[in-house]
Amino acid sequence: MADNSLPRTDTQFAVGFVGLGDQGLPMATAIAASGYDLHVWARRQASLDALDDTSRIEHPSLRALARAVDIVILCVRTDDDVLVLLTEELLPATRPGTIIVNVGTGTPGNATRAAELCARASVSFIDAPVSGGRIGAEARTLTTLVGGSTEVFDAVKPLFDSYSAHVLHCGGHGAGQLVKLFNNTLLMMNQAGIADIINLATQAGIDPIALAEALKLGSGASEALVRTPTNSPVSLSDTAAHLSQVELLDMDLFDQAMTEAGIDAAEATARGIAGASALARVVALLNPEPATTVQGGRDE
């Protein structure tokens, strides 16, 4: 589908950012630090206050932000959130020629639907999910996977460079989301392999922590393994359980995307679900709960 608008070609856009959460906050900070005029809106003032000394222009409503910027970046939780913001707030107020970017993870089908909605309003849309988490956002080393027209990609790539180490154009609308889902699924399939090996090693009498540290140095290492901590001095049980739930949601998106594409991915889906489900158990084995001493009552 062709875009109905011609985006600006200079790099100094006025950039609106929506979604100042765990990953969005450092991304927005990086954008402002790179010299862009950063415009923000949030439902809670605390989210805006978390920007600290970051230079920004705060808006009282999302529509006010939309009227003031050249690009709107959405870093929100779900595709449903994106579509609601587009139809109820952004598109009624956004000027023709504006570019709307979704950096969250969703399905290719919803990216295409969002692009169609935007095109009717002479607005460009691009899906640009990121990989690397909060750590990558803070270090400005995210990988950004982009789906959309080459023209829009060329216009916004310098902006993506402000928080990314790698920016890849993967194809048309939805391609960025599809590549991100393949990436996430492979990560979880690797987690399933890690769980299998650690289970077998434990049965064989091998210390799982020593095994993991050895494997991280060998040819069997993977990004999934390298990112799995060992002997952490703090409890990771809540974090691992939360991440496991997030990964299971990603597997739902992958399954939906494959179904919409008419592809039988049952084996890969099952393997990814196994890896996501095993994450908390593996983290617990490699990071025994630190000892705590309770003195005079409940440990805070």
Rank of each mutant, 00 (worst) to 15 (best):
7 P>C: 02
8 R>I: 10
10 D>N: 14
14 A>Q: 11
17 F>D: 01
21 G>T: 15
23 Q>G: 02
31 I>N: 00
34 S>V: 15
34 S>G: 12
34 S>C: 12
46 A>W: 06
46 A>G: 10
48 L>A: 11
51 L>S: 03
56 R>S: 03
59 H>D: 06
60 P>F: 12
60 P>E: 14
61 S>G: 12
61 S>D: 09
67 R>P: 00
74 L>F: 06
75 C>H: 09
77 R>L: 15
78 T>I: 06
82 V>I: 10
88 E>P: 02
91 L>P: 01
91 L>C: 03
97 G>N: 08
101 V>Y: 05
109 G>C: 01
110 N>I: 01
113 R>M: 11
113 R>H: 10
114 A>I: 01
115 A>W: 02
119 A>K: 09
124 S>G: 12
126 I>R: 00
127 D>G: 00
134 R>F: 07
137 A>N: 15
139 A>I: 09
140 R>P: 00
149 S>Y: 02
149 S>L: 00
149 S>T: 09
151 E>K: 05
154 D>C: 06
156 V>C: 09
158 P>W: 11
163 Y>W: 09
166 H>T: 11
169 H>L: 09
178 L>C: 04
181 L>M: 14
185 T>N: 13
186 L>D: 09
193 G>I: 05
199 N>S: 13
202 T>H: 08
209 I>R: 14
210 A>D: 11
215 L>Y: 08
220 G>N: 04
237 S>K: 11
240 A>C: 11
245 Q>W: 00
256 Q>D: 12
263 I>F: 06
268 A>L: 09
278 A>I: 14
283 V>T: 11
291 A>W: 06
294 V>Q: 13
296 G>E: 03
299 D>P: 08
